[in-house]
Amino acid sequence: MAKQSFIISLGNRGINFFVSIYEAAVLFVQTLLQLPRIYFYRRQVIEQFYSLTVSTLPVTSLIAIFIGLGSTVQGTYQTSALTPRYFTANVIFKSTIIELTPIVLSLVLAGKIGGSLAAEIGSMKVSEQIDALETLSLDPVGFLVMPRVLAGTVMLPVMTIFANFLAIFSSFLMSTAILHWISPGEYVSGMKMGFKAFELYFGNFIKPSIFGFIIAFSGSFFGLRTKGGAKGVGISSTTSVVVSAVLIVILDYFLGELLL
């Protein structure tokens, strides 16, 4: 009996998983279809761009500075006795730009933006505000989802560029002015060594825009699926953060494997 109910529960979970994938695909298509209406929803788009930037700027700056400092301390500790100093600077520069900043920033923002998006849309769902939008002849996907997904996809690269700049600058200052393990000239020549423009593009645009899309889409998707009251909102918010964090880590590997 217990075995039977276990199999049934497993089957139900499997079905729910595929239903969720289907619903996510439908929402994705609906979001794309709302893109031509960007002018109609311009106020909401501008608001989302603004609020995403303003709300994440302090945490982005803090993370970026400490990514730079942490990678410098680790880099010098692990390799400076073994390799030329400019080579260590090169490793710090590339690992920060391509890997550390995009993934750490995305994971933190998955918690901050994704969680709050799911909670915001989820509480709108349970308090009938989504239905109210419909009765005002406003499409919830156009009014809520499209502006958020667009802002996430466009603004995360902007935030990443800013964070990368801060991270490298703090690493440069730490290395040359505080630890004094390398001269400014050597650090810069380390950065130039084996420089590939595509790597910059990959770390600053491709990865963050995909991660930004995942964060905003996941927050919106789980928010719209919210059922019940406050508990449902909490579940949506947590699920959104976990799903986007897992997807970010998995995609980070595949993107590196495919594109580098």
């Binding site: 709108m124 308090s127 239905d131 109210a132 419909e134 005002l136």
Partner: peptide, 20 residues
């Protein structure tokens, strides 16, 4: 449907005012 809804207004039980 969106055009037809312009003929309507709906007053929800809890008001459903946009809290933002």
């Amino acid at each position: 449907l969106f055009e037809l809804r312009k003929k309507f207004a709906f007053v929800f039980q809890g008001g459903a005012l946009f809290d933002f």
